[in-house]
């Protein structure tokens, strides 16, 4: 889970989730606390979805 997905892919990560920003992969200081938590929930859910999905080499 990272904002810099090209690096994650380059080192061979199999399951990569787009984070919000380099200074906070799971946050956003520009939005309200409630919206930020919803964003975090959404990104964590994407990670869980990735973990429970089979992936194939590309």
């Amino acid at each position: 889970m990272t904002a810099v997905t090209p690096v994650a892919r380059m080192v061979g990560s199999n399951r990569v989730v787009q984070g919000k920003g380099i200074v906070y992969p799971l946050g956003d200081a520009e939005i309200s606390n409630d919206d930020e938590k919803a964003l975090r929930r959404d990104i964590v859910q994407q990670a869980l979805d990735a973990l429970s999905s089979e992936v194939s080499e590309t």
Binding site: V23, Y24, L26, G27, K37, R40, R41
Partner: peptide
């Protein structure tokens, strides 16, 4: 290597314990 202030303000932005605990 990055501006730490936002994570210091809320460490869940890096280690999302709040959301994982709810799940």
């Amino acid at each position: 290597g990055y501006d730490n202030r936002h994570v210091l303000d809320d460490p869940d932005r890096l280690v999302p314990v709040d959301v994982l605990r709810e799940l």
